[in-house]
Every structure is written in C-alpha cells, then in structure tokens.
Design a protein around this nucleic acid. Structure first.
Lengths: 111, 111
DNA sequence: TTTCAGGTACGATGCAAGTCGTACCTGAAG
DNA sequence: CTTCAGGTACGACTTGCATCGTACCTGAAA
C-alpha cells in the first residue's frame, strides 16, 4: 500500500553524461520539461503524460530517467508514480531544468 | 589562405535535443568544457585536444559539434580550427556552458 | 615537384538504444 | 474468486552511433 521507492543514484553521484543522454530523447525530455514546469513537485502518475508509445517502452524510458537520477519512482504494484528530484538536480546542475523551458511546448517537430 | 567557415545552424535554430545528444559523448563534452573554460574564445587547432581516438573519429565528433551549433569550424585545407559559439549558446540556452564546469577536470572515467 | 602531416570520404564493424510482441505479475474492484 | 488495467520481464528487431581501415585530398615546406 505504501509503495516502494525504487533506487536511483545519490545526489552527489549524478553524472552529467547520463543526464545528457537521458535528456537527449524527445519523450524523456518532454516528461522532465512538464515536471519542471509544475512547481508544486507533486507525485504524478506515470500514464498521465500521454506518450505516443507502448507501455513497455514507457517502462524503459522511466527507468532511464530514474537511473540518471532525474526522478524518483514509487512502485504501488499495479500503478506507479514519479516525482522530479528538483532539489538534487538544482544543487548539482543549477539552471539545467530552466533550459527545458526554452523549448516550444510541443517540442521540436519529430523528424 | 583565408579559410572557409563551414556551415552550422542559425542561432535561433539551435535544437536542445541535438545539443544534448552532442554533449552526451565524453569526448565531445570534454572539448566543449575546455573551450568554455577559456574565456578568450580564441580559435583553437583541432588537434590541440589530445583526444585518444583516431583522426577519422575526431573528424566525426567535430562535425557533430558543428551541426549541433556548438562550434564554428574553419577549414584551411590541410588544417582546421574551431571556435566556441559562446554568444549564440548563451543567448539560446543561458547557463548551459556553466554546467560543464560542474564536472571533475578529467571528466567521468570512460567506460 | 616531392614529401609530409592534418583532414576528409567511404565503407565495415560492433555495440548501445528505442521500439514492440508475448507472457506474466500486482493490486483494486466487482 | 474473477476480472481488469497498469506495469514488468524477456526477447527480437531496427536504427543510430562511435570507432577504425583504406584511400584520397590539401597546403606548406623542403
């Protein structure tokens, strides 16, 4: 019931390469951009992003985001929530999240 | 003798996805980090970075950096120079270059 | 002109990554 | 218990990408 918090890297261990690799994908970047735009930093359901990809692929992307240290994932068994690790990101890479707002809302048109 | 300036995207056309993809690679990130650390922004020889990779691969990486809009490449025929597009980058993605300094000098150990 | 070092072009290779199909698990609601 | 939707595990496929080998180009210097 409580939900298990899946493990990610410590705040000090955030790797810029992994972060850039995670944010290089349009889908993952749009997720982080939307989380960053909501300053309440509340937990959010994993299927509330309307990503135009299959469930399995979404699982993959959320895992990459967690392993890069950008989000916490909370596992409730039959559903899952994620929360932006804003404080950790801002401490280690100040200004990074603000950059995501420099993109048009819909993101760059896919090739 | 003058050197031809190879083409890259306009300042307004810088794409965050392409930039993140370019900076996801350790070698390219180390090049940009070193350029960003030198505030004189002078032109620099392409083989002054001591990258532990072949000539052909270096050609590839510098092309990626240019196509992402991060550097200008000046072709002199039998040698080449690059220059950081600091103003364009700062205008479009303020604070991005500062993030590269948040990494230890040697960068993360290569896999 | 010949030599030479820096750079490019093209192709091949190996590996990482995005995507999905099938099967299965999990907890909540009937 | 049964049903059902959200999520995962595993595997396959495809694409992208970092890397290098071979061959060639370019300009400077001997």
């Amino acid at each position: 019931m409580a939900g298990k918090n899946l493990v990610g890297p410590e705040a000090d261990a955030l790797d810029l390469g992994a972060v850039f690799r995670a944010l290089a994908d349009e889908h993952r970047r749009s997720v982080i951009a939307r989380l960053a735009a909501d300053h309440s930093d509340s937990e959010r359901g994993c299927n509330s992003f309307d990503l135009p990809i299959s469930k399995q692929t979404q699982t993959h992307h959320f895992r990459v985001l967690r392993e890069a240290g950008l989000v916490d994932e909370i596992d409730y068994g039959n559903r899952k929530g994620i929360r932006l690790r804003r404080a950790d990101i801002e401490r280690r890479f100040p200004g990074l999240l603000a950059l995501l707002g420099a993109e048009p809302p819909g993101g760059t048109a896919p090739r």
